[in-house]
Design a protein around this nucleic acid. Structure first.
Lengths: 147, 147
DNA sequence: TTGCAAACGCAACTCAGTTGCGTTATGGTC
DNA sequence: GACCATAACGCAACTGAGTTGCGTTTGCAA
């Protein structure tokens, strides 16, 4: 599998500038996240890593690496209907997902989000300062719906 | 602590009709959920149970009991920004929460939800059949914001 | 080429949640 | 009130995700 794309090369530069080193594992993870632009669970990441020319990655290393990438602002953790932690490549635009409740397939969904500009406002009733929000849709993907 | 309210009496009747027995623990849980109308984690539930006149509840029993109440349609599991499972009393009206990212305080938030009537529709692009959605806000509660 | 710190692997651990099984107690029936 | 089927319960042991401490390896800058 090809390891370097313009996007990963750019990230490689950014990471180096922040004092992070470029290792085989890190290169592979950047490739996985940047190429697919969708959320991955730790299990799914482990599965994808098998296609790369690196020895089996220890689970401790993988957890620590994901932590580093979050810290570096490359990926963000997200949560859906289950308790499975997922990570997604950071994009500029705020968007939303639709998750299949049967097979866990995930797709982006195109909805006009009226809450985009709500941030930094204070909710009158609860007196909470709103910083961000999460909007996810759940349903059945095409193949699960036809079963 | 008083154990019976009109709402819990009604639930008691419904549960009995479905073949569930009424135990001290179950009565206490109904009371906690019906009286507070907000999401509780298993830990918080355990804390609240101490105020009731029942011996320490075994964790297995508590997990099983919550499962029963979900099955009976009394409570529903919900998930926020963390991986902590929470349960909330079932209400008729679809509503949303705002969660403090510092102290985990939770309040209902009053927003017009333009996605209420989206259910059973098919998203054109992804071909997913939409069954439900989750919309949660995150920010700082009044006291955490003033720190 | 060298040296420092980041990255790594391993063993052992924590903690939420689950399973199997034997015991207790609720509530319907007589 | 006594009986009894089974729901509810407690305990021990287990599972699996994620963490911690520590010693070793490796990327990379000087």
């Amino acid at each position: 599998m090809k390891l370097e794309t313009p996007r990963t090369a750019e990230l490689r530069y950014n990471l180096a500038a922040e004092g992070f080193r470029m290792t085989k594992l890190r290169r592979a993870l950047l490739e996985i996240f940047a190429k697919n632009m969708k959320p991955f669970s730790v299990d799914e990441i482990r599965g994808r890593l098998k296609k790369f020319d690196i020895p089996e990655v220890h689970k401790v290393t993988l957890y620590r690496e994901l932590e580093v990438l979050v810290e570096a602002g490359v990926i963000v953790p997200i949560y859906f209907h289950d308790q499975v932690q997922r990570y997604e490549f950071v994009e500029q635009d705020h968007h939303h997902h639709i998750v299949c409740i049967k097979c866990d397939a995930i797709a982006d969904i195109d909805v006009a989000d009226p809450f985009d500009k709500l941030e930094d406002q204070v909710d009158k009733k609860s007196k909470f300062t709103i910083l961000r929000h999460s909007l996810e849709f759940f349903g059945l993907c095409k193949s699960c719906a036809s079963l």
